[in-house]
């Protein structure tokens, strides 16, 4: 049971930070299917940074992980500029742009991972071996029966993510920028007439989206994957988008949805182990979040209220 909670959380939180990223972009009025590409590219930059700095630290040192997270955020943010440029300035179809950005991310990271490996080690491997982050338990909270499992053996990045989610919730709902951002996705004309800068607001939102997704990606790389390879493109970016949709583009609701996803996946895996099924069967349980997504979509899609201007390019001449 404890394992369900610990594994569930360590899956749910990276997913959550990506979903928050998606919410930022969509609330500003830019449809974002590019989360998958953002997280992969961010993770790639983070992993590359980690590989480069690792020789300077002790083998068990955790410092490279934090360096990797910073670089993943920067990498995701920089890569997101591509989506911003296509959607905001070039007025490309935002769905197509998202797909293009994803395909390009896979191609770029795959190619440059092997290129970097060739340059660094001389072998054209498509993997950066990263290892797994250490885990820590929270002293008192983890002793609580049943839900104590939530606080046992946590990755440090989980705490960072929780902190970031709180910060970005505050930014969106309490501050001047957040107020303009949400207006921008509902009625950009209103923001423009009130003296706000639609283009700038959207650019910042998309970059935030990329940075948060990058953090999500590197966290996956440092936990369930233990390396960076093209298998980082497992569709978790799309799961984050699905979580955002059930969460109705609302951060607190999305937190709950992500927890449900995480617990379902971890629960499935533990069931598989408990029933002593052969290894191949884990595939069936890995499928659970996707099946769950489909089912939830069937029940919840009709009542959704996405930001009204999402997906429409902002054209200053059409006021």
């Amino acid at each position: 049971m404890t394992k369900v909670f610990t594994d569930g959380l360590s899956f749910a939180l990276p997913l959550l930070i990506m979903a928050v990223g998606a919410i930022y972009s969509e609330k500003s009025g830019v449809t974002n299917l590019a989360i998958e590409g953002f997280q992969g590219f961010g993770a790639f930059i983070g992993a590359l940074a980690a590989i480069l700095v690792m020789p300077y630290f002790a083998k068990s040192s955790q410092v490279p992980i934090y360096i990797a997270m910073i670089f993943a955020a920067v990498g995701g943010g920089v890569y997101a500029c591509l989506h911003a440029l296509l959607c905001i300035n070039f007025k490309a179809n935002q769905v197509i742009s998202g797909v293009v950005v994803n395909i390009l991310a896979v191609a770029l990271t795959t190619f440059f991972t092997s290129a970097a490996n060739t340059a660094l080690t001389g072998t054209a491997s498509n993997k950066f071996i990263l290892g797994v982050s250490n885990r820590y338990s929270i002293p008192l909270l983890s002793d609580i029966p049943v839900i104590g499992g939530l606080f046992k053996k946590m990755y440090p990045f989980e705490w960072i993510i929780i902190g970031l989610v709180v910060v970005f919730w505050y930014l969106m709902y309490k501050t001047r920028y957040g107020m303009r951002l949400r207006a921008c996705g509902e009625n950009p004309q209103a923001l423009d007439a009130a003296g706000g800068d639609v283009v700038k607001t959207r650019w910042i939102a998309v970059i935030i989206s990329g940075a948060l997704s990058g953090i999500g990606g590197i966290c996956f790389a440092y936990s369930i994957m233990a390396n960076f390879s093209p298998s980082i493109y497992m569709g978790y970016g799309y799961l984050a988008i699905a979580a955002m949709i059930f969460g109705n583009w609302n951060i607190p609701a999305t937190v709950v949805v992500c927890l449900v996803f995480g617990l379902a996946k971890a629960g499935g895996q533990q069931m598989c182990i408990a029933m002593k099924l052969p290894g191949n069967y884990t595939d069936l349980f890995n499928m659970l979040p996707y099946v769950l997504t489909m089912l939830l979509l069937i029940f919840f899609s009709k009542r959704n209220h996405p930001p009204q201007a999402s997906g429409q390019p902002w054209d200053q001449s059409r006021r």
Binding site: G235, Y238, A242, I245, N280, L284, N286, M287, Y290, M294
Partner: peptide
């Protein structure tokens, strides 16, 4: 059910990939 085809096709992609793989 008003499910955006991009999201549903991607979910179905992974479901198919895992099932056939199994």
């Amino acid at each position: 059910f008003n499910i955006h085809e991009v999201v549903s096709t991607i979910m179905v992609n992974y479901i198919i990939s895992f099932t056939t793989g199994f």
